[in-house]
Design a protein around this nucleic acid. Structure first.
Lengths: 227, 227
DNA sequence: TATTTGTATTTTGTATACAACATTTTTCCC
DNA sequence: GGGAAAAATGTTGTATACAAAATACAAATA
């Protein structure tokens, strides 16, 4: 019997049984719609229309809205409907200011705590980013870029940092995505990333942290006029 | 008419018309119950019982739960009920590690951006804290302490920082409240606060930030064994 | 006695129904 | 025609009802 269990474990590989409730699915969908800009900042969220379109009832839909509200993506005004939060300049700046310090810490801890294999993985992502830059392949570059920053946070092995980083990054996603893209800006960003790779290879945490923080404050200059 | 409005403004002082929906009230109540420890970490939240006790229906109650889940106070396990999140040692450490950097930034910005009146207010809170320490009046001291840190965040005028600080502080509230209180620890904490006041008076942002960060990392030592 | 299997009960998830509120349109009066 | 009051419409908030799980319990079998 014990032996059989062992066999089963090995064969079926013990799937993590992710149960997806409706409100979780709705929350994901809404998040995507907001980030992609289908639901525009400042616009009211038409409950009945969306409920209809998604084919769910209002109950799970509204629960999803509460989640997004707590994440800062929408604003619920009691009795007056929910609107997609429009970010003011000030708010975006405040996010970058905080994110800079979060990633500074993340970079430092990553160097202290990452296993060699994880460092390689990060450098691998970096290399692929460079290749995509050289091909001027914007969208995949953008996605890998996000991944790089998330992975640095992850190997810092600080659960709170991971969470906060993910939250702020998600709120900024849209802004950064639609922001105007001058070739020079892109080149500068890539240069920053080369510096990060260098610091990573040297295992120099404080340096990596500094570069990442500086990188984010420069991001402000890059997105500023698109606000 | 315009004149009358002006009068009304002055007299009624233009209250922000806080409309409180049921789920907001429920969320606050639950937050308090969790922080006060009435709902113990790890315990399941009995929906029917609490709904009964609060005298509301399940709909607003469940919406409130989703909010608390997004805030990290509870965990919703699909189909298996909601439990009050129990913080592992690691998580608490990770929160303090992040909070330290958040408050380091907050302290620095506060000195740069606070108006003189706001500095005075902070120093005033500090003085009252000292008085309470001398009277060994724990609870009010504890509350003023929270207020001090929140106010520093507020005068930093960074909305994201304020939000993140509040969120982490709220999650840690219980831990810090029940943590064992050696007289020496308290004295040390007060010494830190004296340093903060000094930095504040000198308008030395970097220094204030450093002290606050150090203070929080020392908090770890103070709460560590109660976990 | 221990384990399993089937059944009952409780609890959770979702849909619907109703009530309260906000908004828009219409009506009425000046 | 302009503006205020009132009715109609739509939208949001809350309660309840039903369906689908999960859990607890009991009987049956080895």
């Amino acid at each position: 019997m014990v032996q059989m269990d062992g066999m089963v474990d090995e064969i079926i590989s013990l799937a993590p049984i992710e149960k997806q409730t409706l409100h979780d699915q709705v929350a994901s969908q809404l998040r995507d719609l907001i980030i992609e800009g289908v639901l525009e900042p400042g616009s009211r969220i038409d409950e009945t229309a969306l409920v209809d379109r998604l084919g769910v009832s209002r109950t799970p839909f509204r629960e999803a809205l509460r989640t997004l509200a707590a994440e800062g993506l929408v604003m619920i005004r009691p009795s007056k409907g929910t609107v997609v939060r429009r970010l003011q300049r000030e708010e975006v700046y405040s996010m970058l200011e905080v994110l800079a310090e979060i990633e500074r810490l993340g970079g430092r801890l990553a160097c202290e705590r990452a296993k060699p294999a994880e460092i390689s993985e990060l450098l691998n992502i970096h290399d692929r980013m460079i290749a995509l830059y050289e091909a001027r392949d914007r969208l995949p570059y953008y996605k890998l870029n996000q991944l790089f920053h998330s992975r640095v946070a992850e190997v810092s092995r600080n659960a709170t940092l991971i969470e906060v980083q993910a939250n702020i990054q998600s709120r900024l996603k849209r802004i950064r995505f639609v922001g105007n893209h001058k070739p020079k800006d892109w080149a500068d960003a890539v240069a920053d990333h080369e510096e990060m790779a260098k610091a990573l290879r040297a295992g120099d945490g404080p340096r990596l942290g500094d570069v990442m923080a500086k990188h984010l404050m420069r991001t402000w200059d890059r997105v500023e006029d698109s606000l």
